[in-house]
């Protein structure tokens, strides 16, 4: 028993405090759905200028992506160094692809 407790203790130190339940997940999920409805509404509403709609969609997409990364994929929690490494690595590779396509390849 003593030993098991030590193991649990060690794991806690290693990965930080336990995740705080599903409250934040549900809130961010609800907000994401609301943002999606807002996006559809903005596109359907003909009185808004199209450049404003594009701007609004980009902002809302960014917010949703951040929700996804930080709350659902635990990027805000401690002990996710490897996950961060891989996400940043993937981001770097993708950005290199976009940059070379934009500036060098695609006319």
């Amino acid at each position: 028993m003593q030993q098991n407790e030590e193991v649990v203790q060690r794991q806690k130190v290693k990965t930080g405090p336990a995740h705080e339940g599903s409250k934040n997940h549900l809130i961010t999920f609800g907000v994401s759905i609301a943002l999606t409805f807002l996006a559809f509404a903005a596109v359907a509403n003909e009185s808004l200028s199209s450049s404003f709609v594009v701007f609004l969609l980009c902002i809302m997409a960014l917010v949703q992506a951040l929700f996804q990364l930080f709350f659902w994929m635990h990027m805000k929690d401690k002990g996710h160094g490897y996950a961060k490494l891989f996400l940043f690595g993937g981001f770097l590779v993708a950005m290199f692809g976009f940059a070379s396509a934009l500036f060098w390849i695609w006319w």
Binding site: V93, F96, G97, S100, W104, I105
Partner: peptide, 21 residues
Amino acid sequence: GFMVWAHHMFTVGMGAFANAL
């Protein structure tokens, strides 16, 4: 390995600059 894909497409017509890179 992620930085070299376009060498499969030298003859597509990407231009001399992209080909050189």
